[in-house]
Design a protein around this nucleic acid. Structure first.
Lengths: 198, 198, 198, 198
DNA sequence: GATGAATGAGTGTTCATTCAT
DNA sequence: CATGAATGAACACTCATTCAT
């Protein structure tokens, strides 16, 4: 069901190297953007030579593809947890999780990474395709949740608005880095509840 | 108070040239992104030589800065129109405008441009600063509107959520280009109304 | 009939630049081979920056392609001169020209260039194709000459051997740079005459 | 007198490894050229790791040097066989062997290898030197043969032309891969006989 | 004003070679 | 003996920017 959870055939050392590179690259991309980051800088931060990165990744593009894979994979796992929740009080549980989601998505690092991925998707069709495949999955599953567990009609439209809200946070943080999270969360909750209403 | 409304000292010809360049660059950036667009391409599209662009702009960065200026300026003007609306039925008028806003923000060209600017802000502090200055203005004015004309408390928090919704649309379009706009709009309206409720 | 003799649309300055680059590249390739020569060295020798070469040629490969074009073109012109010779004593004229050809093909620069092109053809299919197209032309024309003006049968086979002899000179020079040209020419003539005999 | 016939001090296993590497490298060089072949590819084809090749060869250059050594050595052995032939009918035997030589030298693999070596000699003085030392040997011996067994004067000049013919075949094959070998051979023979004539 | 020739620093990427294991 | 991780120098090529004309 989830190909990314396959047993990794690579040696522990190789896996560690890959994580080193991915972490270094993620940090660089967050700070300076994909195009603003040279392979040399990623290499330096990952503690290896630039040339050696090419033993693990075919190209710079392959690095961001792997980062996207890691992020979307984690996100899908998170989303899947909703299905395990009990039906009763699901709505309030969702609101609680949404509040946690606001905290996560307003984290400067996460929001910056999110934006960087989206920006790269704009000019890299492979990244765009990954993002869309991922979106289909979480969108469909989430709509099914609303339909089956909350007996809501027009689930797709509701999901679009909910996802729009969370997507918007990354840009919001960029425009207003010092926003009052408490004030935001208060009405975020109201908006979500309104979207989840009959 | 508004520097962008200063009488433009430049000759009409010069102004026309500048608009040519800005339009060409905007189109290029939307299609291929800021870093994917070379000065040569902008020049070609603007119908002049690459070198000549430097008579009007100091650098490539200055071009995107001018594009951002133009966009934020237009946006501020749009926002200011709300103050001219009659108090009665203001809420419904706002919802109506919001629906128009959804149409605008989901337009492929506008959403792409919006995203491109945001992406550039991530690595260009000058652009980020412009975006933030602009955000302060529209945020403050819009909050004042809610406070004074709709007698709403916690206006800042409400504004954050409203702006988050609109910002989110550009990303949403990227992730799900074929989304059903009608379904989205229906719950978008519900969310907005909830945020504007006492 | 000869596309390379079309009126050159390029400005004299551009033409001069192209010749500069071609001459510099030819010299470099002769001395250090195609793969042993960096763009920087060609640029230095041509008296311009490396980057600027790309205003005139799309790639390093395009440079060698142009060199091959220039060489084959000149060679075809040379070959075509045979058709203008009077029929009587044509055979002796050919032998005389052959002796001149030995001098040309044993010139260190020419033989080295010739070898470099052939070497490059081995791994660059585009170059190989150019060489083959050129060979078809000169081979066919030369065979026709033998057939029509010298009334020789099996003209193709004779041409192959004659061309083999001249092609061999470049390698011969590499293996024995100090060879006695007079001694060689003496028997070269005998071989040619034998091939041209009834 | 002949260093290549020294008793090989290396263990049979080592010798086998070296042959593996040499065969793999030869095949790679023929297919993709010396510069187009990476050590990784040679290693893969030889069935060992890239690093391990350096236990047997000091460098990539050393591999091609060894290939040249192997080729020239075999060629010298072949040439030496002429001395064992009876004097009578030697000329016709030589022509017969020449025809076999045409077949060998027009073999795609052999001609490609031959050209690759020559190309490498152009930029690697060590290879050039090996080729020249080898040429001195076979040239001298062959001239002695013509002088002593066929009573020919100007043996050196005759040898140059004969060798030029055989060297030319590799290039000829590149320029005209589909040439009619029978037609070529017919006049090849005539040329050789003419060169061997009093 | 307007051109486009020219620069040069910077890019991602390759690959022969080394060496710890 | 054998591996393959690791290096680093080299490479072709791009592009914003300048400037003589």
């Amino acid at each position: 069901m989830n190909m990314t959870n396959q047993v990794d055939q690579r040696s522990p050392r190789t896996q560690a190297r890959i994580i080193q590179i991915l972490d270094a690259a993620t940090a660089c991309f967050v700070e300076q953007g994909f195009h603003g980051t040279g392979m040399a800088r990623i290499a330096e931060r990952a503690g290896m030579s630039a040339g050696h990165i090419y033993h693990y990744f075919d190209s710079k593009d392959a690095i961001i593809a792997a980062i996207v894979e890691r992020e979307t994979s984690a996100h899908e796992t998170k989303m899947r947890e909703f299905h395990l929740l009990p039906c009763e009080n699901l709505k309030h549980e969702m609101v609680a999780r949404a509040e946690e989601g606001v905290r996560t998505n307003t984290d400067p690092f996460r929001s910056a990474l999110s934006l960087e991925i989206v920006a790269e998707a704009k000019r890299n069709p492979d990244i765009a395709e990954r993002l869309r495949r991922h979106d289909v999955i979480v969108r469909t599953e989430f709509a099914r949740l609303l339909r089956e567990k909350l007996q809501l009609d027009h689930a797709e439209g509701r999901v679009e608005v909910l996802f729009t809200l969370f997507d918007g946070l990354a840009i919001r943080m960029l425009r207003h880095p010092d926003l009052d999270q408490a004030g935001l969360t208060r009405f975020f909750r109201k908006a979500i509840l309104a979207v989840l209403e009959d």
